[in-house]
């Protein structure tokens, strides 16, 4: 999990730039079961946040779908 430190935050940052208004809110909705399972409050995600590979993959996929382009994180 430590290897993923900050990557979830980077996905959010990327989507904030690349997505439409409230794209990050949509991402939160899509990955809610994962974040709840890992006790991660999305509004408190920062550069130090670590998460599982499964959550990161889910976030990356959802971000790509929402932005309509591949998330490079």
């Amino acid at each position: 999990m430590v290897g993923n430190q900050g990557k979830l935050f980077k996905v959010l940052e990327w989507l904030e730039d690349e997505g439409e208004v409230k794209a990050v809110a949509r991402l939160r909705m899509k990955i809610l079961p994962f974040t709840v399972q890992e006790s991660i409050v999305i509004s408190r995600i920062d550069r130090k946040t670590t998460c599982s590979g499964a959550l990161l993959a889910a976030a990356r996929n959802a971000a790509s779908e929402i932005a309509g382009k591949r998330c490079p994180v």
Binding site: K22, A25, P33, V36
Partner: peptide
């Protein structure tokens, strides 16, 4: 999901 679910729905 409790309050977290409610808070996530509101902005959308």
């Amino acid at each position: 999901f409790g309050m977290e679910g409610l808070e996530i729905a509101e902005p959308l």
